[in-house]
């Protein structure tokens, strides 16, 4: 048997989880489904449950001079409809799940869940996002790359929650996004490509390329991006990415398709980015 709790404040929540290991239940759109046994019967939670989705302290989007701050329990639709966030952040969220899911599922939930198909991760990897983690003992900031350890595995401590996602403002002025699923709506990704860049006076000053859902965790190589900015050698860049591929054939797609199409799309987008304005 398990117990469930609905703390009234962030402080109460942190006190609760300090002494007791809990599932942190935000939107629950994945967690609640995964724990079902039989319609109408209890869920199979092997730990206690702390509901956090109702805490106003964990909702909201702000911007300061350096970054966008998205609180963890902000819903995906809050992101989609935000007047603060740039389009390149909003668009991938718009293609996640379906309207009902997006109104319930949260930004922090998609990260903490750390699914291979989590569509928000490529954006966060590409933008070098940071996570503000909080426990009763204090706060710490970690890079998203250091937080995600593997499929469904993160570095979140038992007594911690994700309080905020910090997306540094990279002054990007262009992006490309493509999500490939087996239908046109309401679908999980076979693979996704997310690219943001800054191009000024026809000079590519920054470019970030991230591939989601192919490996267990998103694929990105800042070193290869740096080299590419200098030499504009797309094939050399792709070769670097190819070495990072570790896709598997599963029920959504095949290893061959995922890797091949990822390469084709990245090549296509990079060619367009280089051509634009030349």
């Amino acid at each position: 048997m398990f117990e469930s709790f609905r703390p009234n404040s962030l402080k109460d929540l942190l006190t609760l989880i300090d002494g007791r290991e809990c599932y942190k239940f935000a939107g629950g759109t994945d967690l609640y489904i995964r724990k079902r046994q039989w319609q109408g019967a209890e869920r199979k939670f092997d730990k206690d449950v702390a509901f956090i989705g109702h805490l106003d302290e964990l909702r909201g989007i702000e911007r300061d001079g350096y970054a966008f701050h998205i609180k963890a329990c902000t819903t995906q639709n809050d992101v989609v409809n935000s007047s603060i966030l740039p389009e390149y952040i909003r668009v991938p969220y718009r293609l996640m799940g379906n309207p009902a899911i997006r109104n319930t599922a949260t930004v922090g939930g998609n990260i903490a869940n750390a699914a291979q198909v989590a569509d928000s991760l490529p954006i966060l990897y590409a933008t070098d996002a940071l996570l503000l983690l909080k426990s009763i003992l204090g706060s710490r900031i970690v890079r998203i790359q250091d937080f995600i350890v593997g499929k469904y595995r993160t570095n979140l401590a038992k007594n911690e929650i994700i309080e905020e996602v910090i997306v540094p403002d990279g002054n990007f002025n262009g992006y490309a996004y493509r999500k490939i699923g087996s239908r046109k709506a309401s679908i999980l990704s076979k693979l996704s490509i997310f690219i943001v860049y800054r191009k000024e006076n026809q000079i590519l000053e920054d470019v970030r390329v991230c591939i989601g859902a192919v490996n267990e965790i998103p694929i990105r190589s800042p070193e290869a991006e740096k080299i590419f900015l200098k030499n504009h050698d797309i094939e050399a860049f792709l070769l670097h990415l190819k070495k990072m591929f570790d896709a598997e054939t599963d029920k959504r797609s095949t290893k061959f398709y995922r890797e091949e199409v990822s390469i084709r799309l990245v090549r296509h987008f990079l060619e367009k980015i280089l051509e634009d304005g030349e």
Partner: peptide, 9 residues
Amino acid sequence: SYTVPTMSD
């Protein structure tokens, strides 16, 4: 995982 067409398809 079993993807039937949506209206968008």
